[in-house]
């Protein structure tokens, strides 16, 4: 069965006005419907620019971007594209518009002209999806970072998008908020089949996704499952990225001649592997 494409980039390049080089260069990419893709890269690798290209906030210098078959350059579709592919940004404080959570979630609905009668239901549904329904009448500035970011996600979810693009949404949060937000998005992806593009520089988050893309100087340098990408520690390091600690440990153990799987990503897996190996040794 051939999977449906949600987002498609064809030979995409983008240059900021007045800049010398390309911020995004020759990207050919198809992101499948319902997948969870992580984009990794250090600062200035072009990953945030990519997010703004996907929903037409930036228009390509060369090449094309299609959201659900709609060209982002086609002015007729500008607003359809943005409603279908919602972007959530890094700083939660700078994307909440209203002084009450409910009004903020309503903002997008008001913009796309949803009738008044349907609003309440859609707002409650969206806040329920991110587990923030109890905060519906609160002022955003009284919430924690993770809660604010979930309100921002609800603001997009209320518009019923097919894809969510999250541009380093956890980078300004504490570990607890980071987990809250990541788990929420992972759940939206699994339960509702929302296509997710998760832009981050945290390896632990990348390890939990279906597919990992590594960007460097505007180009996509690595593409594969987390196992495939992280098994290639040297290549990652040359792109100034770190390997998750457990993957690093596994690779180091293999290098020292210890018989262990090389594609371990998490502490749980390492524990299981070590226990299994130890049992095996005891039997012998």
């Amino acid at each position: 069965m051939k999977k449906q494409a949600e987002l498609r980039m064809e030979n995409l390049s983008f240059k900021y006005e007045g800049a010398e080089g390309f911020a995004v260069k020759n990207v050919d990419l198809t992101i499948e419907k319902g997948s969870f893709t992580t984009v990794l890269g250090h600062n200035g690798s072009g990953k945030s620019t990519l997010a703004k290209l996907i929903n037409g906030l930036f228009l390509p210098t060369q090449g094309k971007v299609f959201v659900d078959g709609m060209d982002t350059q086609d002015e007729q579709h500008t607003w359809d594209v943005r409603a279908r592919a919602g972007v959530v940004f890094q700083n939660p404080d700078n994307q909440i518009v209203a002084t009450v959570v409910k009004d903020d979630v309503a903002f997008g609905l008001e913009n796309i002209g949803v009738p008044h009668e349907q609003m309440e239901a859609r707002i409650e549904e969206a806040l329920g999806a991110v587990d923030m329904l109890d905060f519906i009448d609160r002022a955003p500035h009284m919430l924690s970072g993770g809660q604010k970011q979930r309100v921002a996600i609800a603001g997009i979810m209320a518009m019923k998008p097919a894809a969510l693009i999250l541009d380093e949404v956890t980078s300004m949060l504490d570990p607890k908020g980071r987990k809250e937000v990541f788990d929420t998005v992972r759940r939206l992806n699994k339960q509702r089949g929302i296509t997710v593009v998760w832009i981050t520089h945290f390896m632990e988050e990348a390890a939990l996704s279906d597919r990992v893309l590594v960007m460097h100087r505007g180009e996509i340098r690595m593409d594969g499952t987390p196992r495939e990408v992280f098994a290639n520690g040297d290549a990652l390091r040359s792109l100034r990225l770190d390997v998750p600690p457990m993957a690093l440990l596994a690779q180091e153990l293999v290098r020292r001649g210890i018989d262990i799987r090389e594609d371990i990503l998490s502490l749980d897996e390492m524990e299981r592997e070590v226990v299994a190996k130890w049992r095996l040794n005891c039997k012998m």
Partner: peptide, 23 residues
């Protein structure tokens, strides 16, 4: 912040008062 907010508002389809409905 103003620059960020402008992007966030546009990303949520804000295009002025025309054709807006109200909560």
């Amino acid at each position: 912040r103003a620059g960020d907010l402008a992007f966030a508002m546009e990303a949520r389809c804000y295009r002025g008062g025309e054709g807006r409905t109200r909560l």
